[in-house]
């Protein structure tokens, strides 16, 4: 729990949140060189569209990771899937039910987040185990509730996800505004300050008068809600819920948060840094898909690249 006093062992002139953007820029630039600059904008536009989902779930993960060493939410893939099924079924394809579906996804995700925290707190289980165990339960619920049936999303939701004004995706703009709000919450509200203080040194934060339990509980709830939102949007985008829809987001939520400047030692978080990391990962997937490599090789490259980038981007203690 104690924090090494000499954290500034390696002082970098760049903020940790910059590395995702740099990696994304290098990758994009490299691709442009190889393809003589063709299709660059399209590639970026597609990557940004996909980034919305990883930014949503990664932002939730960021709240949890920033609340202190050892805190992580591994239930997001299951929450994405269950919330997608529940919201799609509730709406039954009716445009008028959109608000109901959205609220259901957020509330259900938030409740699962609270349960996660309850397991960690009441049973004193490490978060990595508690949230993984919870995710099995949630996945079972999704199988039982959704199963093979696929309910189409309301047409309005599908339209919204691809709605562009003057060539700019509206959902993307809204997501960026959302990140702006998260940025304000983190750095300019009592709650955000409390969360980051808690993450740096829980004992010091408690002795400084912060309600440690409440703040951490809220972080898990936010993570659940963001996963629920991700599931809702993803189902709208891909034409319905599917049992494996959350799979990719286990690794991705952690990777975008950490690569985006969230310190695994706790107490440091960046709402916009996540965009750089998410963009980088989306570009990487697009690029690897275009090479025609097999799935195994693509996974191998993805994993290795993330390792290398995180190695260079994260602060290490002596």
């Amino acid at each position: 729990m104690s924090v090494a006093p000499a954290r500034a062992a390696r002082r970098l002139s760049l903020p940790p949140s910059a590395y995702g953007f740099i990696a994304a820029a290098l990758l994009w630039g490299g691709t442009m060189l190889l393809s003589d600059g063709r299709g660059g904008i399209e590639m970026l536009s597609v990557a940004l569209s996909f980034s919305i989902f990883s930014v949503a779930v990664g932002t939730g993960q960021m709240f949890v990771i920033a609340s202190g060493p050892g805190n992580i939410d591994l239930s997001c893939p299951a929450v994405i899937t269950l919330c997608a099924y529940v919201s799609m079924n509730l709406m039954g394809g009716a445009d008028g039910m959109l608000p109901v579906g959205l609220i259901a996804a957020l509330v259900l995700g938030g409740v699962i987040g609270l349960v996660n925290y309850g397991l960690v707190r009441a049973l004193k289980i490490p978060p990595i185990i508690a949230t993984l165990a919870a995710s099995f339960v949630v996945t079972s619920l999704a199988m039982w509730y959704g199963g093979e049936s696929t309910v189409r999303p309301p047409q309005a939701l599908s339209d919204f996800m691809i709605w562009r004004v003057g060539g700019v995706q509206v959902a993307l703009i809204l997501a960026l505004i959302g990140s702006g709000v998260v940025h304000l919450v983190l750095h300019r509200t009592v709650y955000g300050r409390s969360l980051l203080a808690l993450g740096q040194n829980a004992r010091a934060a408690q002795l400084a008068g912060i309600r440690v339990g409440f703040v951490r509980m809220t972080a898990y709830a936010v993570s659940g809600m963001m996963a629920g939102l991700c599931g809702f949007l993803l189902a709208g985008f891909t034409g319905g819920a599917a049992l494996n829809m959350g799979e990719a987001y286990l690794m991705e939520s952690v990777a975008v948060a950490v690569l985006g400047g969230t310190s695994v030692a706790g107490g440091r978080a960046s709402a916009f840094g996540i965009w750089g990391a998410a963009l980088f990962l989306s570009l990487l997937v697009t690029l690897l898909n275009s090479t025609g490599l097999g799935a195994g090789a693509r996974y191998l490259f993805t994993g290795l690249t993330i390792l290398v980038v995180i190695f260079f981007a994260t602060e290490r203690r002596k």
């Binding site: 203080a197 740096q200 400084a208 107490g267």
Partner: peptide
Amino acid sequence: AFVAGDRQADGVLPVWSIAQNLTISCL
């Protein structure tokens, strides 16, 4: 309000500036 004697364990928030450390108990 609590003033820690074991500064590193009980008081200092090492990521933050002086100002942020100072204001945490009276946000």
